[in-house]
Design a protein around this nucleic acid. Structure first.
Lengths: 237, 237
DNA sequence: ACCTGAACACCGTTCAAGT
DNA sequence: ACCTGAACACCGTTCAAGT
């Protein structure tokens, strides 16, 4: 992984190389394992050398988000606000699924970089171009929240593989016993959890189709926005 | 802060005392400053003593969440599913606002404790009691996501006071210059951000009424749920 | 049974020094 | 201008020892 030229001479570090290496490393080993020291080792440099290119770890994470944002498609042209928003959110979601580290990182960003503000600005622009009032657009953006990035806080959230081996599944009979106990103690959870074995037909727990759930909620909101817009909704009323 | 009896004799540590101290400490200094070492100091004990009462830091955080869940009102009786859900979500939200550490902690929980499962079970029960199909209830719970806890990933999220002094505001003229630049570079963001000076009448940035935004989105979703329920919606259709 | 002390393997970041 | 080395002030957690 140490970056060297043909003859072994050092390749100069740049901010971009640092950020790209950070993204690749986070994709590979999970964000919680990415430390300044680990990243330095990855690019073949002493930890402190990184600080010539990013002020601190926060700025590193901001830069990683910028690379992510660059992967999101621009707004579709010549379609209504509704498909435009829908397509863009789903594009953001694809970028996010490619980079599982991005969700927790986005959640903790406090300063918005120009790239992030650009994304938000053009996102808001889709509603305004669709004839939404500034007032309604404001509330609609809040209602969308992190869904603008293609994710939501899920309830039954699987804890993200973290690029490590999942713990070995318990033996089938132990599993069955646990499920029985679950069903006895939390009958409603059990019914709802086992109800929809969407994609893989598995009976145990979350065989949920996350994409379906995401689009279900997204469309519910978009339909709501459409209805409010059609009836000329205003917060002063 | 060291816990001692009258004559200076030690008060025995218990799991409950550890958890309550952790909650109080997180309320006071912010969750990111709560370390096992800092908490130990708070209860007047050497760090390792805590490990007799909680297996590790994760379990400490799980226990803190349990104390939070205990503050949420039980479901209202003899009302429809809609007001019942609404009231309970808003009760959860009040608990959450009392304990700003709870949001990030909930987001990172991976194992659900019995108290959390109890809450979820009775939450799901409100929809089932209202006549929702198991199928619709499943999707509705996903759509609600973290809103069940009274929070959402906000976009313009203020970074939570962290129980520390906020940095001093820049001088007014610098502020105005920054706003002007903002408006030039990100016109849509600027329009929407300055549009609603709800509560405090401030023109600068997020004078947003978070509670209004939360209820706006919640009601949008509840209305959507109601509509789907009324029309007998099913995922197989 | 409960608490202590010393140690291990990590962090992010500083400062002064090297080339 | 860029990179290095040593150090500081932290982490969570282990192990063996004390009472």
């Amino acid at each position: 992984m140490v970056q060297q030229g043909e003859g072994g001479q050092r390749v100069r570090l740049t901010r971009d190389r640092v950020l790209e290496a950070a993204v690749a490393l986070a994709d590979e080993i999970g964000i919680e394992a990415v430390s300044m020291r680990r990243l330095a080792q990855e690019v073949g440099v002493v930890p402190m050398a990184l600080y010539k290119h990013v002020a601190n770890k926060e700025e590193l994470l901001d830069g990683m988000v910028d690379l992510l944002v660059a992967e999101i498609d621009p707004p579709a042209r010549d379609v209504g606000w509704k498909p435009a928003v829908r397509l863009r959110v789903l594009s953001a979601r694809r970028a996010l699924l490619r980079h599982p580290w991005a969700r927790p990182v986005l959640e903790t960003r406090v300063n918005k970089t120009p790239a992030v503000l650009d994304y938000m600005d053009s996102f808001i622009g889709m509603f305004l171009a669709g004839g939404f009032s500034v007032d309604l657009t404001h509330h609609v953006m809040h209602a969308l929240g992190s869904r603008m990035w293609g994710f939501t806080q899920e309830l039954f959230q699987e804890p993200a593989p973290a690029a490590a081996e999942p713990p070995p599944a318990p033996p089938p009979e132990a599993m069955a016993a646990m499920l029985g106990q679950m069903a006895a103690l939390y009958p409603n959870v059990a019914r709802v959890a086992t109800a929809s074995a969407h994609d893989d037909g598995s009976v145990v727990g979350p065989g949920c189709d996350d994409q379906f759930e995401f689009e279900f909620a997204l469309d519910l909101l978009l339909d709501g926005f459409e209805r409010l817009h059609a009836q000329g909704w205003s917060s002063r009323s």
